[in-house]
Structure formats: C-alpha cells, structure tokens
Write a protein that binds this DNA or RNA. Structure first.
Lengths: 137, 137
DNA sequence: CTTGACTCTGGACTATAGTCCACAGGCTAT
DNA sequence: ATAGCCTGTGGACTATAGTCCAGAGTCAAG
C-alpha cells in the first residue's frame, strides 16, 4: 500500500500536523481510511489536494472558497465555466480591496503632506486635526 | 453639568453602546466619572475622541495603533514628527498590502485568461490545473 | 407605585486560520 | 522490555473588533 501517515503528509505539504487535522474538521482533506488502531491513512491524492489548498490560499482564497472549488472540481456535472466564474469573482473582490486601500492611502498621504512634522508642536499637526475634524463619516 | 451618559455618547458617535464599553476595556475611551450608582459619565471631549477613533479606523489604523496615537497626542513632550512618522509608516504598510494584492490579482487574471470557461469539461480547466501544479510555494 | 427605558456586570459568541497542550495509546529498534 | 518517536482526542488559546445576553439595579414620568 502506498498510503501515508499524517506526519508524512504534513511534511510533504510543508504544513503543521495540526493544520492537516484542522482541514479535516473543515471537510477539506479527509483521510482515505484509518488503521485498526485509529491512525489516519492518506492516499497520494491527498498531497495533491493539500497542495491545491495552499496554492489557492496564496492567491487570496479563503478555506471556505477553496472548499467550494474542491467540491466543484469533483462534481460529475461541473463545467469549466463554474470554476472560471469563481476565479473572476475573486479577481473582482481583490480589485475592490485594492481600490479601497488606494483611496485610504491617498487620503492619508494628503493629510500627512500638509503636516509640518519635525519638532513642530502638536497644535500644528494636520493629521491629528483631521482625525478630530467633524465631517461625514 | 454637561456630562453625558453612555447611551448618548454611543448615539452621538453612531456606534453600538457595547462598542463604547469595549473601547474602555481597551483603554481608548475612559469615562470622566461615575455617578454614585455606578453609571458612566462622559465629557464632551469623549465625543471628539470617539470620532477620532472611528475616523482613524476608516483610514486603516488598528485600535492598537489608534491607542498609540491618542497617547502621543496627549503626551506633553510629543512632537508633530512623531505623529507624522506614524502616518508615513502606515502609508508604507498600506502600499505593501496593495502591491501584494496586485500581484495576486495579476496572477489570477493570467490563470483565468487561459481557461476556456463555458461548458468545457474540467480536464481543460487551467485554473484547477494551476492549483494542482507542483511548483515552489 | 408602577412602567418603561436606561445602565451595570461578567461572560459567551461571531468570523478566520490555525497552534499548542495534556494525557493516552501505538509502534519500532535495540 | 524499554526508550523514544508517532498518533489519537478534546479542548484551550492566539489575534481583531466587536456583538449579544441574562440578571440585576436605577431613574424619570404618569
């Protein structure tokens, strides 16, 4: 049998052993079987699956989203379009986050630019002034 | 006395009453005094302070960072440069987050672009293929 | 005096993604 | 047989920023 133990899977995926168990609780990565003494046994496919999870995480997907994609990828009636749609939605989500952050960054830059800085007393600090200003939230 | 109760402060700041208590536990917003029966009493300055907190949050500062800025802003020896430095560090932090997200977005776009989509079978899905690929993490 | 609104406290619960712990049992090599 | 890993379980804990709840006390108006 080429099945492997949890420690080997964890090592192969370069993750903590508890992380593998955590993914199991989240229904993302189930062992193929258990030994008579209760030890988890994983197939070689589990390594692929674990790699999938880590890769997708690195691209900004949450475990929940990853679970959906994995479900899709094993659904017998799934089409490529389902997955592509998911990816495109994610791209849009990320774009929104980027735009939000850019807006915040630009606002902060503007406030900071007019601040004298250095050893000027706090009364002249336009940053604090801005935070205290009474404007629409 | 022009002191106000917690409910009035919460309303003035447009936040949940529990949020005001939470900020107190975090040492961000302390009541001026307590009535004999233990009710919190806030000065008008608390409204300003609460506004400060919400505004800074909107600009991406964490409560911890906001606490630091508030401490600075009331330190007798504080200089404008201290605050400005803080803001500039935050701008850099945000810039890093933006760059990360842009990298992720571009990667995802590239993967998605080559995917046929539509009713093409999953074997042709370059998105799944990419996630399963054996590359450096 | 009673009703309704307000406030008090401490603690539990939300989401996310894990990590760490103790205590117990399993497995392998010497 | 015994040392020294490996694995099992359940539960606690991390960070962040709150929200919600129960049970009790307070306060003002009718």
């Amino acid at each position: 049998m080429s099945s492997i133990a949890i420690g080997q899977l964890a090592k192969a995926g370069n993750v903590n052993i508890d992380t593998v168990r955590y993914y199991e609780r989240k229904n993302l990565l189930m062992p193929e079987a258990r030994t008579p003494s209760g030890y988890r046994r994983y197939s070689g496919d589990s390594i692929r699956r674990l790699r999938f999870i880590r890769k997708a995480q690195g691209l900004g997907f949450s475990l929940k989203e990853i679970g959906n994609m994995l479900d899709m990828s094993s659904a017998h009636d799934a089409e490529c379009g389902n997955i592509k749609q998911y990816a495109e939605k994610k791209i849009d989500d990320i774009q929104v986050r980027i735009s939000d952050l850019q807006r915040i960054r630009d606002g902060l830059r503007q406030i900071a630019a007019s601040c004298p800085g250095g050893d000027s007393p706090l009364e002249n600090c336009t940053i604090l002034e801005h935070f205290y200003k009474n404007e629409a939230q």
